[in-house]
Amino acid sequence: MTRGRLWALVLAVLLLGCGAAGYTLRAAQRADGGGAVAGGEGAFTLDGPGERLFVRDTATGRVALARGRNRVAGGPVCDRFHAAGPTALCLRRRPGVPARAYAIVLDRELREIRRIALPGIPNRARVSASGQVLSWTMFATGDSYASSAFSTRTSILDLRTGYLIKNMEQIPLTIDGRRHHAPDVNYWGVTFARDDNRFYATVSAKGRTHLVEGDLRAWSARALRPNAECPSLSPDGARIAFKKKVSDDPATPWRLYVLELRTGRERPLADRRSIDDQAAWLDDRTLAYGHAGDVWTSPADGSGAPRVLVRGASSPVLVR
């Protein structure tokens, strides 16, 4: 073989190797959601005139802007999504075993500003009205609240200080007027008041679930009432939507309720189906939630009837 042909062969091998390496790298980036940048494509942002409804598009896994029956799915890839003020929170699963994920903090342009590696399966995500305090829940064991064999890990991130509470189980808990010390505590489904200090959440302890009210500055939480999960505080701060266990049938255990904080009165929504979601308030009168692969709405006062808002979607949030 001549020297020229030898160099041509070497060059061809190198080009093929580089091409394969490049393809492998791009494939790995796609599997991890597109590499280091978690933002949307092109001009897809949270900004825009008036109120805008965002959802997770099931077909693409991307955050989408819902416009009537149409949607624009140009946002980041997320398994759970929420946004408020200048901040969005995207929970994204990572490939591989054991289960793991990222909590990705985004600005209103959907540009990544912080990324936190997490163990487990993404489950709940919430951003306070100011956009300054965030919370997420991961399934550490199991993948459903309908099973007794599950464990959660819920975190709170304060963007004002950068302080991260990795596990809310550290917060001192009071149940029935007594400090609860047992190691069987699980928190999930946090929702924040407008002062960025008070919060509500679900806690499981002694084999029962409770709605708890917490105080970040005082570093404390107390149980308010039993049998209340995945709370969502209304924009006016007067009511909490939650799911209540109404059946021992693992296929249909829950129904959505709304609690008036001042009176303690609760009423069920007109939707009698079993809803496993942390409902979102579209306004002080209307709730949105995921069920059977679609986003539905129901009046918060228990009147009317449920209706489909967005097909093939989840994680609804109205951005103002």
Rank of each mutant, 00 (worst) to 15 (best):
D107A: 09
D107H: 01
R108F: 04
E112A: 12
I113L: 11
I116F: 12
I116G: 03
L118C: 07
G120F: 00
I121E: 03
P122A: 06
A125G: 09
R126K: 05
R126L: 01
A129F: 03
S130C: 02
G131I: 00
Q132G: 07
S135D: 00
W136F: 01
W136G: 01
A140G: 14
G142E: 12
S144V: 12
Y145R: 07
S148W: 10
A149N: 14
F150D: 04
F150A: 04
R153E: 11
I156F: 05
L157T: 09
L157K: 03
L159K: 05
Y163K: 15
L164M: 12
L164Q: 12
I165T: 14
M168S: 01
M168Y: 07
P172G: 14
T174M: 12
T174D: 11
D176I: 08
R179Y: 11
H180C: 07
Y187R: 11
Y187D: 04
Y187W: 13
W188I: 05
W188C: 05
W188S: 14
F192H: 10
A193K: 00
A193Q: 04
N197F: 05
F199P: 00
F199A: 06
F199D: 00
A205W: 06
T209I: 06
H210K: 00
H210V: 07
L211D: 08
L211Y: 08
V212W: 04
L216N: 04
W219V: 10
R222D: 06
A223H: 02
P226T: 13
A228Y: 01
E229C: 04
C230S: 15
C230N: 15
S232K: 05
I240A: 04
I240Q: 05
K243G: 03
K245P: 03
P250N: 13
P250E: 09
A251R: 15
T252H: 15
